[in-house]
Simulated scan of single mutants.
Amino acid sequence: MTSFSNHNSWRRQQASFLLAQRKKSFFQKWRKPFLVFCLIAGAVAGAWAVFTVLLTGSNDMEQTAPQISKPTLKPPVSLTRAQVREIIQDVDLVNTGRNVFPAKTAQGIVQVVTYLDVNLTGFLNATLDHLKTLTRGKPTQIAMVVMDGHQGHILAMAGFDLEDKEANPCTRAVYPAASIFKIVTAAAAMDELNFSPKTPLYFNGNKYTLYKRQLTDVKNKYTVKVSLEDAFAQS
């Protein structure tokens, strides 16, 4: 039996096998990065195509869209006091729980915006409700108006007339404001002299008289001591 040995054939086979292994390893190494690159490139190309279509479409819409003229706003009209009075003559501004009201005019319904403080008005109304429950010293008419001393805005209006439920005592000149000096004097004492409602005051004579001798600062056994709060309420 004769055996043959072909070394050259074996070497070529080994070289071919090693080359095939290297090619296989190369493709396995770069296959995933190549696929990822292809996906990213495809996504970018698709996004660019969509952006181009949208941009072209928006330009076409801008070119073909009809031109709409903007309405011209009229400047606000200044009203006289007489016109304002006529507008709000039927608006109930006393004891109200709001600060915006509809009003009828010759041009239609308008909205009247005021400076009324709803919370302050509610506080005054609660005080009025308490006064109505009194059996002694209950007023038949009372009006309370709060005004901003710096701007002149009316912040609250509250009152009642037990004889005329529909009346607004805050805007009626039925009685002269004879005691207005009490409010001015008390406010000045609290503002300038730092008086509080409990600050003691002294007077001689009757509560409801004001003679020259009562204006002297004299304290004797006839002198009466009273707080600012009580003096304001009882004078």
Rank of each mutant, 00 (worst) to 15 (best):
Q89P: 00
W48C: 14
W30A: 13
T140F: 06
A20H: 08
F232H: 06
A233Y: 10
P197A: 03
A173S: 07
F4W: 06
V218I: 13
A43N: 01
A188N: 09
Q67M: 06
A43V: 09
A178S: 13
I142Q: 00
V118I: 15
A187E: 08
F27K: 09
P66E: 15
V84P: 04
S78M: 04
R85W: 00
A187P: 00
V118L: 04
F37T: 13
F181G: 09
V50K: 10
P102C: 12
R22P: 00
V100R: 15
L120F: 02
K24W: 06
E229H: 10
Q141M: 14
T209G: 01
V226K: 07
Y175F: 14
F123W: 07
K23D: 08
L134M: 04
Q13Y: 10
L116S: 00
G152T: 08
K132Q: 14
A49F: 11
T199N: 00
L120C: 02
N125T: 04
K104D: 12
R12G: 06
L35V: 11
S69R: 09
L73W: 04
G205Y: 00
K198S: 15
C38A: 14
P66K: 11
I68H: 11
E192I: 09
N95L: 02
T140Q: 11
Q13S: 15
I40V: 14
A173R: 03
I88E: 06
K221H: 11
H153S: 10
N8I: 13
G152E: 07
T64I: 11
T52N: 13
Q234T: 07
A188D: 06
V146Y: 02
T133G: 01
E86I: 00
V174I: 15
W48Y: 15
L131S: 02
N206K: 09
D191F: 10
T127Y: 12
L116W: 01
I88W: 04
Y208I: 00
R81A: 08
K212V: 07
A43S: 09
T121S: 12
V118A: 07
T2N: 10
P33W: 01
F101V: 12
L134G: 01
R85K: 13
Q21H: 09
L120G: 01
D92A: 15
S69T: 13
A47D: 02
T185I: 10
L55D: 13
T133D: 05
K132C: 05
M1S: 11
A186G: 02
D161C: 05
S196P: 01
K165P: 06
K207R: 13
L18C: 02
V100H: 07
P197Y: 03
T127P: 00
K138A: 15
A158G: 11
S58W: 12
P139N: 05
N59C: 02
K24S: 12
N59P: 00
P200N: 00
M144T: 09
